[in-house]
Simulated scan of single mutants.
Amino acid sequence: MRRLIKPTVYLLAATSVLVLLAAVWYFQLFTRLGLHWAAWQHAEARQQDSLWLPGYRVVQQARPIEGVADVSALTWDAERRILLAVTNKPAAVLELSRYGALLRQIPLTGISDPEAIEYLSPGRFIISDERSQTLVKVRIDASTQALDVRDAPRLALGIGLNGNKGFEGLAYDPARQKLFVAKERDPMRVYAVQGFPPPDSGVAQLSIREMTELNQALVVRDLSSLHFDSRTQHLLAVSDESRLVLEIDLDGTLLGSLSLLPGQHGLKRGVPQAEGMTMDEQGVLYLVSEPNLFYRFVPQGAED
């Protein structure tokens, strides 16, 4: 009997170790511990010169956006003070309230796989076609009833084309007229694009470069959305697979993180598949998750 017990004990011990290692890998526990340590070590300084994501709390979570599915991307229209997202089944631009209510859908033609949308200035936006890695300049305002972008200004980048792992995120720095483009994975990269969209008059020189220092700071498995914060000059990046939002400066310093796991920042359940993220001028962070869930986070000390 004793001879049977030992192999069983060894098997249980080995199984427990494998389960522990799988949990460490799946939840990136060492990465998360490193982020928590860095946040604690530099808390006083970074609360002053960053958005301080560790202090954010969720005030609205997992609200279904009625009547839509497969929602992707999110951007803040600073002029009309609404949110815009895209969906590709069917292709459409969605307009949402600050609280996740669907205001209207705008049918979209001329793009086969819309995946990201970014506000540039009043009425001007960029939409990305993920599979073809094409950026398209569009105009959207309160009078827009439908979007046909077949003849719209566009830029085909075609960097490492590999099907459904293309351009997942866009962010825009209005002061420098610089567009940040995120490639989801294989390889995961952020690029800076200047000279597109072209100005309404004149010609701009096109420049595309890889953000090498910033890319080295991306301690996540994939990228699903970006946001550039003009106040701090920092970039936010969200990872669906890693369940994390990161704040990074343009020199590649990792400044803070927001976990999308259950129990973190007031989340009752984890965010299942984060696909879009943006902020408004008050620092309120909005996030959407497939299939159609809406979240709102507020900074430390802010009222709901």
Score class of each variant (00 low, 15 high):
76 W>H: 14
120 L>M: 04
146 A>P: 01
115 E>C: 06
136 V>I: 12
151 D>K: 14
103 L>H: 01
109 T>M: 05
129 D>R: 06
65 I>C: 06
69 A>E: 15
54 P>C: 08
45 A>W: 06
92 A>T: 14
67 G>R: 02
66 E>T: 07
66 E>G: 02
131 R>V: 15
138 V>E: 01
131 R>W: 13
72 S>K: 12
37 W>Y: 13
90 P>C: 14
89 K>M: 12
82 I>D: 13
70 D>Y: 08
61 Q>C: 10
38 A>L: 11
151 D>A: 15
82 I>L: 14
108 L>E: 09
126 I>N: 05
80 R>E: 15
110 G>C: 05
50 S>F: 05
100 G>A: 08
125 F>Q: 00
102 L>C: 09
62 A>I: 00
80 R>N: 14
128 S>C: 04
72 S>V: 10
49 D>M: 02
63 R>T: 11
58 V>E: 05
38 A>T: 12
70 D>E: 15
55 G>P: 01
60 Q>Y: 05
101 A>P: 00
41 Q>S: 11
77 D>V: 03
141 D>A: 02
110 G>P: 00
129 D>H: 05
122 P>R: 07
86 V>L: 01
143 S>I: 05
47 Q>D: 00
89 K>E: 15
49 D>A: 06
112 S>T: 14
115 E>K: 06
140 I>V: 13
53 L>D: 10
42 H>P: 01
101 A>S: 09
148 D>M: 07
130 E>D: 02
60 Q>V: 05
40 W>V: 15
88 N>L: 11
61 Q>E: 15
135 L>G: 06
111 I>K: 09
58 V>F: 02
117 I>M: 03
129 D>P: 03
65 I>H: 02
143 S>P: 03
89 K>Q: 14
107 P>C: 04
138 V>P: 09
56 Y>F: 09
98 R>M: 14
77 D>N: 12
139 R>D: 15
49 D>L: 02
58 V>Y: 00
66 E>N: 09
67 G>V: 04
138 V>L: 10
75 T>I: 14
61 Q>R: 07
75 T>Y: 08
126 I>T: 10
111 I>D: 05
39 A>F: 06
43 A>P: 04
110 G>S: 01
83 L>Q: 07
102 L>S: 09
120 L>T: 01
152 A>W: 08
45 A>E: 12
119 Y>H: 11
65 I>A: 10
151 D>E: 12
55 G>C: 07
70 D>S: 15
90 P>D: 14
139 R>Q: 15
78 A>G: 13
143 S>Q: 14
102 L>T: 08
120 L>R: 07
104 R>E: 11
87 T>A: 12
90 P>G: 12
121 S>E: 14
70 D>Q: 15
126 I>W: 04
70 D>I: 10
46 R>L: 14
100 G>E: 02
128 S>G: 05
88 N>M: 01
39 A>G: 06
71 V>Q: 07
94 L>A: 05
84 L>D: 05
142 A>K: 07
130 E>A: 00
139 R>K: 13
38 A>N: 14
137 K>F: 10
104 R>G: 11
118 E>S: 04
55 G>R: 10
41 Q>T: 07
65 I>Q: 00
101 A>I: 06
113 D>M: 04
92 A>N: 09
